[in-house]
């Protein structure tokens, strides 16, 4: 049981030049093996042109309890969005 293959998180870049995106996870004995498995598990239909694998244990995640402290400060900063500013139609596209 303790010898279970470690968990890797898998990130795939699709065909259209976007960032690698998390698609799921899998078990593998090492990173190279994780790439091979990711090919079989997550790209059977040409879903990607590039694969990243990261040991799940190496990921540091924010904790749900910190959600307020981390993200609420953005609530009262609507001026960061372009729609905050009214630009007269006469000015044209901006």
């Amino acid at each position: 049981m303790s010898n279970e293959w470690p968990l890797y998180e898998v990130f795939i870049r699709g065909q259209h030049g976007l960032s690698h995106r998390h698609v799921g996870s899998l078990h593998a004995s090492d990173a190279e093996h994780a790439i091979q498995n990711a090919r079989d598990v997550y790209t059977r239909r040409k879903e990607g042109v590039s694969i990243w694998v990261v040991p799940a244990a190496q990921i540091t995640a924010s904790s749900p309890e910190d959600k307020g402290a981390l993200f609420d400060p953005a609530d009262d900063k609507v001026y960061r969005h372009p729609t905050f500013f009214d630009i007269p139609d006469d000015v044209g596209a901006m």
């Binding site: 049981m1 799921g24 996870s25 899998l26 598990v41």
Partner: peptide, 16 residues
């Protein structure tokens, strides 16, 4: 495999 991974996020291991 997708589903086993989803179950594992709840704190059960694949071997279990």
């Amino acid at each position: 495999l997708y589903l086993y991974c989803a179950a594992e996020t709840l704190g059960v291991s694949r071997d279990e």
